[in-house]
Amino acid sequence: MRVAMNGGTQRSRGRVLIGKPGLDGHTRGAKFIAKALADHGYEVIYTGIRRTPAEIATAAVQEDVDVVGLSLLSGAHNTLFPQVLAELRKLGAADVPVIAGGVIPQADIPGLLTAGITAVFTPGAPIEQILAAFDEACTRRRKMS
């Protein structure tokens, strides 16, 4: 239930998991980010839709990824994003940064950041900004480990 992609022959920038937690079936954003990251030089694992937070965290650990990206457009982010963080902690992977995107009201963003999400992007965010956030998160994690 996953696809690995990588964008080219250059040395990999790192490994990323793009996850769709919950019941939401909107994949346009997640798939675009996955492909853009691959083109940017990452090895990308895409989970497909309807994954539980535990499944996403387990896949992240098994695949030994540097960063997790979560996409959700259903409004369940306040419940599901913190659950993914909790599952990562349970598996001793609290150091894996999690970047999130989707239809997320501005008012919810500070709470998600406080909960431990590294960055949150909403519709219309330029891809350079998103790639830069992944680069920064990946570099920081690699320095720490």
């Binding site: 019941l23 939401d24 259903s74 409004g75 369940a76 982010h77 306040n78 599901l80 659950q83």
Partner: peptide, 8 residues
């Protein structure tokens, strides 16, 4: 269904 009830 956690988090999704009555959302969309």
């Amino acid at each position: 269904s956690a988090g999704e009830v009555g959302r969309v």
